[in-house]
Design a binder for these strands. Structure first.
Lengths: 180, 180
DNA sequence: CACGATACTGTACAAATGTACGGTATACTG
DNA sequence: CAGTATACCGTACATTTGTACAGTATCGTG
C-alpha cells in the first residue's frame, strides 16, 4: 500500500478517534483500521501509540476501547443531564417518561441533582437567558435573594430572579419591559 | 446474596451506565458487576437486558462496550470541539498546542470547522453573551450584516456584530454603553 | 402451599479486542 | 550509496468481554 505524507494520516486518525469519542464510545483498533482501509491492526496501533506519545491521546493498556482524551488538570467531569419536556412537579423520577434526550454538561455536581429545561419568553433577557435557551437546573433545598430560580406556579414553570424582603417573596424578571 | 426491592437496583444501574457514558466510554458488564458488588456477570446482563427492553438503553450485541443512550429522532450528533486558549491567527492546525481541552457540543457541522473561545468583557451583553462565557465559533468564508463575528484586530480577538454599509465595515457591540 | 416472577450466584465458552513478532516499501539524510 | 526513519502489511496470541446454561433464594399471589 502506498505511503502517505508524514503526519497527515496521523492527524486524520486523531480526529476520527476524537469524533468517535464524542459519539459515545472510543473506537476499537479494528474499527479505525476499517475506517482508513488499513489491512493490519498493527498500523493503527503505531499511529495510536504515536498520538499517545505526543500527549494528544491517553490510553489504558489491555482494555477494550481504552482510549481517552487527556483532560485538563482540575477539569470538571462531563455528566449527561436529562432534558425534560415537562416540568417535574413531584419527585424527579416521575418525569422520566418525558425524557427528550440527554445533554452533555461539564459539572462537578452529583448527576442526579441536575436536569435541563427549554426557556420560553425573554423575561430574563438581561441575565443572558433568551427565548429558546436551554437552562440546566440544579435541585437544592433552599434559594436566596439574587438567585435565579425555576418557580412552579400551578402547572406552569417560570425562570425568575428571587427576592425576599420583609417576609414577602417576590419573583422579578430580568428585563425592564416586565413587572415583577 | 440478599435481594433488593424491585426496580431499585435497576435504576441505579441505569444511572451508573449513563454517567459512565458521559465519562467517555460505556462500562463493561464486569465493571458494572464490580461497582455494585455483584458476583456474577449474569446479574448485570439481566439488568441491562431489562433496561434495553424498557427502551432506556440501546445495546449492540456481541460488541465490547456496546451500550448507548437511545437518541431522539433527528437529534444532532455530539462532537468534541477544541477549546483554544489563544486565538488561531493562521490555519487552525497551528493552534493545536494551545489546546485547553475539549467541549461536547451538539451540532451537525463538520467537527473540523468548529472551535471554542472564552469571552472577556461584556460588550455583547444584549445578545446574551456575557463575560466568561464560552462561545463556539464556526469558520466560514464570509459573513453578512447582522452576523455575530469573531474579528481579529492585530493580535487581539473580539466578538462583535458585523455591519456593512456603503462599502464600509463596522463592528458594533451589543451593549448601549459602548460605541461601535 | 404451589406457582411464578424477581434478584442473584457460579461456571464455562466464544467472540471481540489489544498486543507482539516479523516483514516490505518508500522517503529522507549524510 | 549505506543508514535510518516512516508507513504499512500479515499473522499469531493472550486478554478482555459478551453471552449462555444451570442453580439458589426471596417475595408476592391465587
Amino acid at each position: 500500500m502506498g505511503r502517505t505524507p508524514a503526519g497527515q494520516t496521523r492527524e486524520k486518525v486523531f480526529r476520527f478517534v476524537r469524533d468517535r469519542l464524542a459519539g459515545g464510545a472510543p473506537p476499537t483498533v479494528r474499527e479505525v483500521m476499517e475506517a482508513f482501509g488499513f489491512r493490519s491492526p498493527q498500523t493503527v496501533r503505531e499511529h495510536l501509540d504515536a498520538l499517545v506519545e505526543d500527549g494528544r491521546l491517553e490510553k489504558e493498556a489491555g482494555l477494550a476501547r481504552g482510549l481517552k482524551l487527556p483532560g485538563r488538570r482540575g477539569e470538571a467531569p462531563t455528566v449527561l443531564v436529562p432534558l425534560l419536556g415537562r416540568v417535574p412537579a413531584g419527585p424527579l423520577d416521575a418525569a422520566i417518561e418525558d425524557l427528550q434526550g440527554h445533554l452533555p454538561v461539564q459539572s462537578r455536581r452529583a448527576p442526579g441533582d441536575l436536569f435541563c429545561l427549554r426557556v420560553r419568553g425573554d423575561s430574563m433577557k438581561d441575565a443572558g437567558i433568551l427565548d429558546g435557551d436551554l437552562v440546566v437546573v440544579r435541585r437544592q433545598p433552599r434559594a436566596e435573594t439574587g438567585d435565579v430560580v425555576v418557580a412552579l406556579i400551578g402547572d406552569e414553570a417560570t425562570v425568575k430572579r428571587l427576592h425576599v424582603a420583609r417576609g414577602r417573596v417576590e419573583l422579578r424578571p430580568a428585563n425592564d419591559a416586565y413587572l415583577p
